[in-house]
Write a protein that binds this DNA or RNA. Structure first.
Lengths: 143, 143
DNA sequence: ATAGATGCAAAAATTTTGCAAGGTG
DNA sequence: CACCTTGCAAAATTTTTGCATCTAT
């Protein structure tokens, strides 16, 4: 069940990028993960697949994927960023994070998600009109 | 209009802490600021008031104030944390941030805030019941 | 007087960058 | 084969820490 996602591969190639082994491995890892992984987490996981991959490649790949809108980067306030495949984790595409300030445990939740989506949509439209922003994403960690 | 806020001072003393010059100066700065300041921003501003204050004190003070629930820490995704006095800036207590991914400009907004507050309250109550979390804060930057 | 706070500089931790070498389309 | 990507190590950034000294209560 590798993430050799042909759609992502195609998009990268169309944009003049290369779908390398390192990138495929990182997408695999993100696709299979049930957690919100830090760059370090991903680095150690990739190394089990391909021990020659370096830290810089992990960061550069995450940056590329984030810019492409395939990966979402989060800051939960502990000094290191976490990454998550958008629409990944076999869950609903839209969810939030509940972060325990004591133990840093993170719970994804989707309670009242429909009501929220409706409100968010209304808000985003209003903001786009009012401030000229095109909304690409939003985050609501509770911390 | 210094922020020698007697209420905060009293709370600190009650909790066995000291309301030092550095802490008062940092509260002043946060209280007067219309922006979301980084530790570095605050450091340079404090230095204009009291040139002997060091970086470590700024970080330690922000940490204390954050733990006390007086200051809110944000990560907007550019690698450095920003700090904001809760209920400060002469604005409504509850607001959100619109962050431009291009230029990093931040706009505070409160559109649909009443509807949102209602939904948030309902959600928080449900989450608290369901997961046993006591909700202390939430953040919704659009990034 | 005394526990808490500070300043300084060093250390830690995370992320970025330069460049020669390698791999992909 | 051209050009994007990688690995490595060094550098840059932000934040934390140790410890002697200072200071608010």
């Amino acid at each position: 069940m590798r993430y050799g996602n042909p759609w992502i591969r195609q998009r990268m190639i169309e944009e003049g990028m290369r779908f390398t082994e390192a990138r495929r491995a990182i997408l695999d890892i993100l696709g299979k993960s049930l957690q919100h992984l830090s760059a370090e987490d991903i680095y150690f996981k990739v190394r089990r697949i391909n021990p020659s991959v370096g830290f810089a490649t992990v960061y550069r790949t995450l940056d590329v994927l984030t810019r492409m809108g395939i990966v979402q980067r989060f800051d939960f306030g502990d000094g290191k960023a976490r990454y998550e495949l958008i629409g990944g984790m076999g869950k609903e595409e839209h969810h939030h994070h509940l972060v325990c300030t004591g133990c840093r445990k993170i719970i994804d939740y989707t309670d009242f998600i429909d009501e929220e989506k409706e409100l968010i949509n209304k808000t985003e439209q209003a903001l786009a009109r009012k401030y000229g922003f095109y909304i690409t994403n939003h985050i609501t960690p509770v911390q």
